[in-house]
């Protein structure tokens, strides 16, 4: 398959629309969460205003590593988003392998970590350290589940997985325990409470982001929104059968994100050691059980 310039444009379109979508959805969620907290909340487009305001502010720099890391993070995440299959839009067909996501995602995170450490603030270094620790926590159960899935479905292409699910039922039905584990890991990926230890405003003053202000923070916010878009799309595609059309995909997307926000709204924050022990206890056990059920006994397939 040849990749044309149109494909690139469409891919950029996916990334851009993903950003716009996630920013709106999170705005709506802010509003609904506010209702749970007995208040009205901001306008649904508040996040757009925040981002544009930040891009409009004056930038300060803490050295070239700091600046370059932000650009690298943003570029890495946009690159990841370009591969994301949304409903029936799969731009680079055949390249939307799960492992592509894993590696490309790491580029973005690495850029973020590099930049944050480059800012020289001790709180940022602690935050980065915690973020990496947390990653070690949720990656293991998530990988166990996804590898088991790949093993039984015999493909690691996301769009192929979606096609199989469209034909023979969602993975939610095939592996309910695995979906729960996947959702818990998704909460960790998104940095929703109780897994927002690396941001922890109370003691770390927003952790890696502590030294960011102005344009860089705006870029990081864009990056964060796109990263959220990629992660939730991945979850929808892996476990909820993607979408046969855009609308179905959007509905699933909205439900997953809103659910994650609501759950996080009534939970406190773990300490970092509690995060790791939590992931290494129940989710990993459940993940192994589910993997055993799938791979050894072949239940549900």
């Amino acid at each position: 398959m040849t990749i044309t310039i149109t494909d690139f444009l469409v891919a950029f379109g996916v990334a851009f629309c993903g950003w716009a979508l996630q920013t709106s959805v999170s705005g709506i969620t802010r509003k609904t969460v506010a209702r749970m907290q007995k208040r009205y909340g901001p306008k649904w487009y508040q996040n757009f205003r925040d981002i544009f305001k930040l891009l409009n502010k004056r930038a300060i720099t803490h050295g070239w590593v700091y600046d370059f890391g932000v650009i690298m993070a943003l570029a890495g995440i946009i690159g990841t988003a370009m591969f994301t299959p949304v409903a029936n839009i799969v731009v680079f067909k055949g390249y939307d392998n799960f492992f592509v996501f894993v590696y490309l995602f790491a580029v973005g995170m690495l850029g973020m970590a590099m930049s944050a450490s480059g800012s020289g603030n001790p709180l940022a270094s602690i935050g980065v350290m915690r973020a990496l620790t947390q990653m070690v926590g949720y990656e293991v159960p998530f990988m166990v589940i996804v590898l088991a899935l790949i093993h039984v479905r015999d493909t690691s292409s996301i769009s192929a997985l979606v096609d199989i699910q469209q034909a023979s039922g969602w993975n939610l039905v095939v592996m309910p325990i695995g979906t729960i584990v996947g959702f818990i890991c998704l909460m960790g990926m998104l940095g929703k409470k109780p897994f927002d230890t690396y941001i922890a405003p109370a003691e770390l003053a927003s952790g890696p982001m502590v030294e960011y202000g102005g344009k860089q923070l705006g870029m990081l916010m864009i990056m964060h929104e796109i990263a959220t878009f990629v992660e939730i799309s991945l979850f929808v595609n892996l476990f909820l059968g993607g979408g046969s059309n855009i609308l179905e995909f959007l509905v699933k997307y909205f439900i997953v994100y809103t659910l994650a926000s609501y759950v996080s709204n009534v939970l406190g924050r773990f300490k970092i050691d509690q995060v790791v022990t939590f992931y290494y206890k129940i989710p990993i056990l459940l993940a192994l059980i589910q993997a055993g059920m799938l791979v050894i006994f072949g239940w549900g397939v």
Binding site: Q37, K38, K193, A202, E203, N265, V266, L267, G268
Partner: peptide
């Protein structure tokens, strides 16, 4: 207690 632990809902309710 919602501040240090991130449970902002408690903060909103109690202040109300």
């Amino acid at each position: 207690i919602g501040g240090p632990t991130g449970l902002y809902t408690a903060m909103y309710w109690a202040q109300a």
